[in-house]
Simulated assay, not measured.
Amino acid sequence: MQPLTSDKADPPVDTSSETSKLRTSQQRVSRRRFLKSMIGSIVAAPFLMGAYSRWVEPKWIRSRELTIATQRLPQAFQGMRIAHLSDLHFGDHTSEQEVDSLISRVMKARPDMICFTGDLVEDHKVSGKAIIPYLKKLRAPFGQYAVLGNHDYRRGTDLATEVLTEAGIDVLTNKARILSHIGSSMAIAGIDDALDGTPEMGNALASVPDEMWTLLLAHEPDWADYTVSSHVDMQLSGHSHGGQIRAPFYGPIFLPEMGKRYPDGVYTLPREHDHPLMVHTSRGLGTTLLPLRLFCPPEWTMITLQSEM
Rank of each mutant, 00 (worst) to 15 (best):
A140Y: 07
S180D: 11
Q75R: 06
Q78D: 09
H181T: 03
D119A: 05
I131R: 12
I114V: 15
L66T: 09
D87K: 13
L88I: 13
I182W: 04
I178R: 10
K137W: 01
T67F: 00
T161L: 04
M186E: 00
K136A: 06
L120N: 14
I131P: 10
T161N: 11
G91V: 00
V147Y: 04
I188R: 14
A140I: 07
G118Y: 10
K137N: 14
G143H: 09
S127R: 13
T67R: 08
S185T: 11
S185E: 11
A76N: 03
N150A: 06
P74W: 05
F142Y: 14
L148H: 07
R154N: 11
A83W: 03
Y145C: 13
K175W: 03
S127N: 14
Q97V: 01
D158V: 12
G149M: 12
A76I: 08
M80P: 05
S127P: 02
V147K: 03
A146W: 15
F77S: 07
Y145F: 15
F116V: 13
P74S: 02
P74G: 01
L172C: 01
G128E: 10
D92L: 06
L164Q: 10
A69I: 02
I131L: 14
I82T: 13
V163T: 01
Q97I: 04
E98D: 10
K129C: 01
V99W: 00
M186P: 05
D152I: 15
M113E: 06
T67N: 07
A160E: 06
S101R: 09
L179K: 09
P141H: 06
Q75T: 12
Q97S: 12
L164K: 13
Q78C: 02
S185H: 08
L164R: 12
T67W: 00
T161C: 09
A140N: 01
F142V: 04
I68M: 05
M107H: 00
R110N: 09
I103F: 15
K129T: 01
P133Q: 05
V171K: 00
Y145M: 08
G128T: 11
Y145H: 13
I114C: 10
F116M: 15
R155K: 15
R139L: 12
D112G: 07
P141F: 03
A176K: 04
E98S: 12
A130R: 13
E122D: 15
L85D: 07
H181D: 04
D87W: 13
A69Q: 03
H93F: 11
D123W: 11
T161W: 05
S95N: 06
